[in-house]
Every structure is written in structure tokens, then in C-alpha cells.
Amino acid sequence: MWKFSLRRILIMIPQLFVLSVLLFVLAKMMPGDALSGMIDPNVDPERIEELRNQLGFYDPWHVQYASWVGDLLKGDLGTSFRFKMPVTELMGQRIVNSFWLSLATLILTYLIAIPLGITSGRFNDTLRDQLITGYSYVGFATPLFIFALVMLWLFGFHLQWFPTSGSVAPGSVPGTFEYVMSKLYHLLLPALSMALISTYSTIQYLRNEIVDTKQKDFILMARSKGASESRVYNRHIFRNSLLPIAAFFGYEITLLIGGSIFIENIFGYPGMGQLLLESISQRDYSVVVGTTLLFGIASILGALLSDIILSIIDPRIRIK
């Protein structure tokens, strides 16, 4: 397993390299540079050119790339021209918010999907199964942003059960119990909206996996040992069917990133997704690059996590 994990981690190096090159090229292709917004238009253009030379804007690309990566490693992602503060500092607050939202979404997704998937798979082709499958197809077919808007209107504005924007009630003091509860209260509706829609893949995957496992010889063998139906399900079918779901966990993170961009904007939730979209519309390029880089790294880490989880739980990989 260690060998496998180590190998898997080594594979990440070229992945990260490609990601950084792509982002670097994108950053360079964007119009303007760090000086365009920062300098008083009254300054002499020659002086600006001089500054540009000093800052290395006319160096060969690989030198520029090297210094950019060097800055990255030091944690320097440049400065946001909109907020006039370092990108890292700006993202710092947002990451925490996005992290909690993603975690809540994941927990809710599994809380909904696993019982439904198990029921659907165990009682396949019954009314229960058809209802659950029907629900998951509706979830699959409904665009997230429309569903989220409906949820916001219904529970936020119409029924007024949940707050309609922000991540915490204004005036709460960090560290107090009220603060934590307020945070939780604010992320519940966006998380639920996303979870209800994104359960589709997990439910259907789990259902098919169970239906498939049910017909395996080793299930017949378990029955022939005298195992009761509940034991057959709990010890043999569910365990074996949950394995691919667990392995899917890391990829789930990638999906969450895509979803969070919509959700955070619709619910006015100050996270990374909102930051990205805002920065794009405000042409705050250094922030765009920073957030994209982070999303990219998160996806790569998610895939890594999936593979490592699989290698831990599946003996066929573990032993190698």
C-alpha cells in the first residue's frame, strides 16, 4: 500500500506542473498587468516602462515562469487590485467558508444518498425503487441554479426559514456558541440545495452496485451457509457495494467545486466560488489565477484521495 501511495503521489508532480503551466499561460494572455491598475495615470509612461523592466516583465518566458512559481511556493499570489490586499490573505477567509459548505454538502449528500441507494438496490423493481429512481432522475435533469433559486425563494424569502445571504449573522462574535450556530444556520440551505441535486450519481451507482452484487456466487454461498437475509445484506452485499462509493469520495470533491460556484453566488455566500465569479466580472486577474489554482489543486488531491482510499479498503490493490 505504501508503495502504491508513493507512486500515486509521484504521479501528481507532472499533474501539478501541467496545471501551473496552463495557469501561467492564461495569466500572461490576459490583457493588462499588475501595474495597469495600480499606477496613477499621471506618471510618465517612460517611468512605467522602466518599472516594468525592473519587475522583469520583459524577461524570457521561462525566467518569468520560474519567478512566478517561486512566488507561489512562498505563498505569494500577487495582489488583488480590487481589494488592494494580497490574494492569499483574501482567499484565506473564503477558503474556510467554502470548506464548511463543502463538508456540509458532502455529509448531507451521503445522508440522503446512502439510505436511498440501499433501499433502491435491495428492493429493486418495486414501487419504492421506482420512486427513488424517479427522484434521482428529476435531480439529474434539474439544473442546479434553477433549483437553488427555487429553494432560495421558497425557504428564504417566502417562508423565511433561512437567511438569504452571508455566512454569519452580522455582529456575531467569533468563538461564541451563537457564532457557530449562526454559521451553521447560514450554510444549511445552500448545502441542502446542492445535496438534493447531486445525490443522483451516488444513489444510482449504489443501487446498480447492489443489484449487481446480489447476483454474485458468493452471495449464494453466504445463503448456503445459513446466513439470514439481513446478514447477507449487511455483511456481504452492502460492504462490497459501498467500496466503489467510498472510492468515489475524492471525485465528489471535484463535483462540489463546480457546484459551489453557482451555489455561493445564488446564496450570496462568501466563499471561493463567489470570489472567482466576482473576480472574473471585475477583471481582478491575480485573484482569478489564485482561485483557479486552488480549485485545480483540490481536484488533483481529490483524485489522489480516491485512489488511496480504494487502495486501503480493497485488498486486491492493498497487497500489491
Binding site: K216, D217, F218, L220, M221, A222, R223, S224, K225, G226, A227, S228, E229, H236, R239, N240, L243, I313, D314, P315, R316
Partner: peptide
């Protein structure tokens, strides 16, 4: 089923055809 499960595995046992699929891989 509960009566049957008392017999299966105790009073009657079964050997399956394909040893590659008859055992739980995990």
C-alpha cells in the same frame, strides 16, 4: 426462511462450481 437457515450450512452444505466467484473478494 429462519427454519431454512437453520438447516442450510448445518445439515446441508453446498459446493459451488466456480471457486473464483464463490468467495467474497473482500
Amino acid at each position: 426462511p429462519s427454519k431454512l437457515n437453520k438447516l442450510r450450512g448445518k445439515n446441508m452444505g453446498m459446493i459451488f462450481q466456480d471457486p473464483l466467484t464463490a468467495l467474497n473478494p473482500l
